[in-house]
Simulated assay, not measured.
Amino acid sequence: MTGIPASDRIRDLINLTGRLLLAFLFFAGAVQKLIDPEPVREMLGWVGLPGWLIWPVAAFDAVAAAGLVLGPGIAIWAIAMAGYCILTSWFHWKLGNDPWQITIVVKNWAIAGGLLVLAANGPGRYALGRTRN
């Protein structure tokens, strides 16, 4: 890593840490859907969607989590997941009688914002397919 300023290495480590934290959120969501699918099936039913959609959504969560960690195509994954966060916030908005649901809406929007910043700035030095400078 000679020749790379310490500030760049630190920025890239922070970027990687952020990507890992974001990915963990989506990976945990996939695992949760696989272990206990009923709450999400019910939520899908409340808005008129079929319960079987849980399986492609769980797969999307898991694959997107891997995309966020590994780095190649990160802008596409980050934008897709930002859209997913905005879309899924609608489900919680529909349940707006519960103040916690509104908190989830706002958190989803904040996560979408972070994903868009990641899309704009890229994965940094610590990603597959990157060459070392």
Rank of each mutant, 00 (worst) to 15 (best):
6 A>H: 06
80 A>E: 01
83 G>M: 12
86 I>G: 04
28 A>L: 03
94 K>R: 14
95 L>I: 06
39 P>K: 10
98 D>W: 09
71 G>R: 10
58 A>C: 06
130 R>I: 03
130 R>D: 01
39 P>T: 11
50 P>S: 04
38 E>F: 14
70 L>H: 02
11 R>D: 14
127 A>V: 06
101 Q>T: 13
68 L>M: 10
123 P>T: 09
84 Y>K: 01
105 V>P: 12
4 I>T: 14
85 C>G: 10
122 G>Q: 05
104 I>W: 04
105 V>D: 04
9 R>P: 00
28 A>C: 01
58 A>L: 05
38 E>H: 13
99 P>W: 09
70 L>N: 03
89 S>A: 13
79 I>F: 06
59 A>W: 06
103 T>E: 12
110 A>T: 14
105 V>S: 04
10 I>H: 03
50 P>T: 09
102 I>N: 05
47 V>F: 03
8 D>N: 07
32 Q>Y: 12
31 V>L: 14
4 I>D: 05
123 P>I: 07
30 A>S: 14
64 A>C: 15
66 A>G: 11
91 F>Y: 13
17 T>K: 04
49 L>E: 08
56 P>H: 10
30 A>C: 08
110 A>V: 15
91 F>P: 12
37 P>T: 09
133 N>V: 15
58 A>H: 01
89 S>C: 06
79 I>Q: 11
48 G>K: 02
105 V>Q: 04
24 F>P: 05
109 W>S: 08
51 G>Q: 03
59 A>V: 13
130 R>A: 09
110 A>Q: 03
5 P>Q: 15
61 D>C: 15
43 M>W: 03
68 L>G: 01
52 W>H: 10
100 W>R: 15
101 Q>F: 08
88 T>S: 06
